[in-house]
Design a protein around this nucleic acid. Sequence first.
DNA 1: AAGTGGTCTAGACCACCGC
DNA 2: CGGTGGTCTAGACCACTTC
Lengths: 244, 244
Amino acid sequence: MPDDRPHQKVLKYETVASGIRTLIAASLSPNDALPSERDLMATYGVSRMTVRAAIAKLSDEGRIYAIHGSGTFVGAETSFTRTRKLTSFTEDMTDRGLVASSKTLAVARVEASAEVSETLRIPLGTECTHLRRLRLADGNPLAIENVYLPEGVISIDALKLNESLYEQLSALGHQVCRAEEVIRAINLGPADSKLLGVPNGTAALQVERVGSSKRGHLVEFAQTIYRADRYNFRFVVAREPSES
Amino acid sequence: MPDDRPHQKVLKYETVASGIRTLIAASLSPNDALPSERDLMATYGVSRMTVRAAIAKLSDEGRIYAIHGSGTFVGAETSFTRTRKLTSFTEDMTDRGLVASSKTLAVARVEASAEVSETLRIPLGTECTHLRRLRLADGNPLAIENVYLPEGVISIDALKLNESLYEQLSALGHQVCRAEEVIRAINLGPADSKLLGVPNGTAALQVERVGSSKRGHLVEFAQTIYRADRYNFRFVVAREPSES
DNA sequence: AAGTGGTCTAGACCACCGC
DNA sequence: CGGTGGTCTAGACCACTTC
C-alpha cells in the first residue's frame, strides 16, 4: 500500500459531534443546556438520526447527558474521564500527559503454564513468547508488565523490543480490538516491590488482560502490576434508564 | 402518583434484544454468528433501526460484537461481565449470586470535611449525613462503606437504616443516575482489617464514588473498601473502531 | 399546550469482507 | 460479486417535562 492517507471520509455525525464539542468549549458550562436536537438538525442540515448519533457518541464519552422531556446538557466537569477504551500503555500515559518508556527485564520462549494455557485456550506446553518489562512514566517506575503471546501470533525472533507491541501485532493481522480485564488489589512481593521502588508488602493494582482479535482469537495475556500511589482507574458509570 | 406499575410499555427493541439473548443462551457459542440484521428485521417484523438499537444495547453490555462487513457475533464467554452499570451494593451482590446484608457501624450528623466539601462542592462545614456500614455477602464481611450525603438531600432523621439507600434517595427525587468512580489499591489499617477479618496491612480495593442526579446535582460521596481476596472488577473494553 | 428527548418506520447508499 | 454492518434521510408518534 504505497498511498498514505488519501480519502479520510468525513462522517456527518462526526462533524456534528465536533461542532458540539467546540460549542461546549467556547461558550457552555457544566449543566448548561445544548441546542435541542431539532435545532441541531437545522444548524447542520442533517436528519434527526444523525444528530442523535453525534449525541450518543458524546454521551458515551461522558461529556453530555440527556434528560427525557427536558433537554441535553453539558456533563459535570471531571478532571479526566477514564473511558473504557482499550489502550496500550503508551497511549494511556500520553492521555495522562506523561511520557512512557520501558525497560525490558526478560524476553524468552516459554512453554504455556496451566494458567496461560487455560487463559489463552491453547494446549498445555504450547510455545509462547514471554515479555517482561518495567514500565516508566516520565522516567519513574510505574508498572511491571508480563505479556504472553502464543507462538502462532508472533515469534520471539520477529519481536522488535523497541517498537510498540500493539503495532507489531496489528501489522501481523492480530490487532487487539477487544479485551477482558480484571482488576485486583495485591500485596507486592520482595522482587516486584524492589523493581517499583516501594516497601515490601505495599498494596498494588493488578490488571489482567486477555486481548482478542476481531476474529475472536485470543492473542494476548497481559498481567500488569501498577504502583498504587501513582496509578488508579477513573471512569463514569450510568444507571440503566429503564428499570428500578 | 398513587398508581403502582400500571402499563409497563413494551419497547420493540427490548423485545428483539430479549429474543437475541434467548437465542444465544439456547443455541449459540462464543464467536458464533448471529442472524444478520436483515434477517432479524424479518423475524421480528421491525425496521432496521430497531434491530440496530437492540444490537447496540447488547453490544454495550459486552455480550456481542460486530465486525463491519462480516457479521455480528457472540462475545467471548466471561464468567460474569462486570459492566459499567451503576449498581447498588445489593444489586451487585445479587448479580453475583450472593445474598447481601449489612451491619450499621455508625450513623451521624457531621460537618463536611475538606475532602467531602470539595468532592460534593458544598461549603466547608455544611451539615451532612454520614453512614458507615459493614457489608456482607452470604454472611461474610466483604466491604466497609462510608457514605456522605448533604443535609439537603436526606436528613439523618428521615434515614431508614433497614431500607435501600438508593431507593430512599429515589423517592426523594434524588435518584443517582450517574456516577464517577475511582478505583485504588490501599493497605488496610488496623481497624479496617479487623472489621474485614484479614491481617493488618493486607491489600484492598478502595472505590470512591461521586453520584449525581439527573439534574447534575452531586448527591452522594461513597468510599467503599473491598476485601481483595473476595472482590475484583471485571469488564470488557473495546478499541475505538475509527483511529489508530 | 408546547417543547423536549425516545422510539420507530421504510426506505437508501456506502464501506468492508469473503468467496 | 453478494452479503454484511455503518451511515443517512424524512418523515411519524409517543413519553416526559415545563409552563
